[in-house]
Design a protein around this nucleic acid. Sequence first.
DNA 1: CCATTTATATATCAACCGATACATAAATGA
DNA 2: TCATTTATGTATCGGTTGATATATAAATGG
Lengths: 200, 200
Amino acid sequence: MPGRGRPRRFDRDAALRTAMRLFWERGYEGTSMTDLTTAMGIGSPSLYAAFSCKEALFREAVALYNETEGAVPRRMLHEEPTARRAVEALLRISADAYTDPATPPGCLVVLGAANCTEENQGVREFLAGLRREDLAMLRARLDRGVSEGDLPAGTDTTALAAFYNTVLYGLSIQSRDGATRTELHDIVDTALAAWPGQRS
Amino acid sequence: MPGRGRPRRFDRDAALRTAMRLFWERGYEGTSMTDLTTAMGIGSPSLYAAFSCKEALFREAVALYNETEGAVPRRMLHEEPTARRAVEALLRISADAYTDPATPPGCLVVLGAANCTEENQGVREFLAGLRREDLAMLRARLDRGVSEGDLPAGTDTTALAAFYNTVLYGLSIQSRDGATRTELHDIVDTALAAWPGQRS
DNA sequence: CCATTTATATATCAACCGATACATAAATGA
DNA sequence: TCATTTATGTATCGGTTGATATATAAATGG
């Protein structure tokens, strides 16, 4: 039921996608409400009525990002048969996504609130929490590799997960600096040489 | 010769160090002129008279950062006898510096203008240029390792340098997220396992 | 038809941004 | 002494920030 009052003139989902795109491209503080309302083609009271405030809009946009952009890497992480292949798929898919010319370079969760003001520490902590979740998923996949026997028992999965997570962070910055897809995959090649038991 | 007019009431070098510290902590756009003048204890016309404008002050502060904080890693990179030991020293010293409680976490050159506004693209490009210089120095050190025989002939030094550079970028973000010194060194351990010929 | 509800458009709000105008203070050179 | 030069303190500039007050438009329920 669409309710009683005057119907909304714009598509809320489309507006949210627009916000995701802008925040992805320019970060939280780098995107102004005027940028958003202009890109959405609506007035600022309409935006506030639909999304409460800038921070709420950002959180909703990031949630959308996490559901859409994060779906493929998450699925790969689970479906690939070994930990090694899962991590390689994660890195390769991320490298491809970060250099997709149809979307802004790098990861919104990593870059969206890099050095933001103290007054927006809540936004920063929100993204940091998502990063911790991603790290935990990666570590869990490595632990699964140990329990399934494709990773040596006694592997320091915490350190290994932290390492590949760090590489992913670095890839985001590299893509922002204009690194090509090939360059990122070359970096991934080297990173995979650090895999336990690997000969480089 | 201190010149003719009324002498400056404040220490320009100390003010520059204050600016470096603030920019390091909060980034270019995250630091306001009011933040700067307050921390320096001077009025805004004095700041403008001494440093022209915000961007010029930032560039000078970053130059100071590069000279001071960058000195030790640069020296290690040159003085360590092998490429492998040089890279390890670079990573370890950076990990220590990024987690030094006396200074802000992470690297100013990496984090100082992460997703800044389009109108400040000049600042972003300035830092990107410094990062390219650092990358070139790292690659040159690896090339030296090849010519001196401690790295196998045919080693892809470009890819290897890009990889360790990427790890350094990632370490900056990790330290911003509150990673401890031990955690960073564990990541460095894993990164070094990717070294050519290494058994991990 | 009309009360109610919701969304819109216009016009702003106070706070902060980077940057200056202006008058005054404090030094030097002649 | 006094013109010149430079720096300082105060007050403020126009512009932008995130967020609203207000009045009107457009739907539903009775």
